[in-house]
């Protein structure tokens, strides 16, 4: 029955779409290295929905969450699944940070890079009712604070920790970094005023931003965001100043991409590259980018690998400075 259908499709699809040397023959698993509800999970579920809606794959897509060990579990799983062309892994900077900080025996070079879909932005957020409105005012207030200001983020020795360290190093202010289990938890703690600031993606704080319990101080990027639709308080994403405008030069962006297990064939890789090329053109994806404040940046093949190599080297240097690399 299934084979019959596949055969029928093979005939019909040739005329409709370019023929692929390879197509998935069973449901595709997207492994998410974070828990349900987080930013990576939202991306995977958005992809799941639009791939099925636009019939970009002959097989359904399943999202599997493997959040343990800061994504290490998911990476180990992909490593074990070499040659399996029905598994995908969503990635963020964690793909180098987790192995670097824990000596976990995984390396992205053992995987097959498929594509980078976007770059995520980071912002510094303060509680909605806090007296400071800009980064400059925040730093001034932090200088005299005792005990030191608390900045919250998700996980230890990860992106948020790194940003907090860099901010402290550049401004000469001492901050206490408080690691929480997830971005969602951090957001709650900021809304409740238990921390003075947090670092987070737009998608992690947008709920609090709209609800007035959090406000962005600055964007850790070279350029402002491009989205001009009003989000909250008559502010759009593009109204958020960069930290550079306020004298803090440190910038940080995070890739959001897709990997496959190692040792898959070039045809298998090509199918997915093509699938995601089409996926990022759909209106649902564009809506998602705008809603989550992501920077569209599609790369595949060589440019993606070059990006990964450079980005990894940058992380290694930053993490070395921050003392996140294991010493023994």
């Amino acid at each position: 029955m299934k084979q019959l259908f596949a055969a029928a499709c093979a005939v019909a699809c040739v005329t409709a779409a370019p023929a692929y040397a390879w197509e998935p023959t069973k449901p595709i698993e997207i492994v998410v290295p974070f828990g349900p509800g987080g930013a990576s999970d939202q991306m995977a579920r958005t992809l799941q929905g639009l791939i099925q809606k636009h019939s970009l794959s002959p097989q359904p897509v399943i999202v599997v969450n493997k959040p343990a060990a800061a994504g290490g579990e998911a990476m180990m799983d992909i490593q074990k699944s070499a040659r399996d062309p029905h598994k995908l892994l969503t990635t963020s900077s964690g793909i180098y940070m987790t192995p670097l900080s824990t000596k976990m025996p995984v390396n992205w070079r053992d995987f097959t890079p498929v594509a980078m879909l976007a770059q995520d932005e980071f912002l510094i957020w303060a509680q909605g009712s806090a007296p400071y409105k800009t980064l400059t005012e925040f730093i001034e207030a932090a200088k005299t604070a005792s005990p030191p200001f608390k900045i919250g983020g998700a996980g230890s020795k990860r992106e948020d920790d790194l940003i907090t360290f860099a901010l402290g190093a550049e401004t000469g202010v001492k901050f206490a970094y408080i690691p929480y289990k997830s971005g969602g938890e951090t957001s709650t703690q900021l809304a409740g005023g238990h921390i003075q600031a947090s670092t987070g993606n737009p998608s992690e704080e947008i709920g609090s931003f709209k609800g007035g319990t959090a406000k962005p101080l600055c964007l850790l990027s070279e350029k402002r965001m491009r989205y001009t639709t009003k989000v909250a308080n008559d502010m759009s994403w593009s109204d958020v100043p960069t930290c550079g405008e306020q004298g803090v030069k440190f910038t940080y962006n995070m890739l959001r991409g897709i990997f496959m297990p190692g040792r898959v064939t070039p045809e298998q890789q090509a199918f997915y590259v093509d699938m995601f090329k089409k996926a990022v053109e759909t209106p649902e994806w564009k809506d998602y980018l705008e809603r989550s404040g992501l920077l569209p940046d599609f790369r595949d093949g060589k440019p993606f690998e070059e990006f990964l190599t450079a980005d990894e080297a940058k992380h290694k240097e930053l993490m070395g400075k921050a003392g996140f690399l294991p010493t023994n």
Binding site: G35, P36, G37, D41, Q42, R45, G184, S187, T188, A191, G207, S208, K210, G211, T213
Partner: peptide, 15 residues
């Protein structure tokens, strides 16, 4: 009321 998921299921509903 706040957009804070109180449980895993609530988190998926939130998404």
């Amino acid at each position: 009321a706040l957009g804070i998921p109180g449980s895993a299921t609530a988190a998926v509903l939130l998404g």
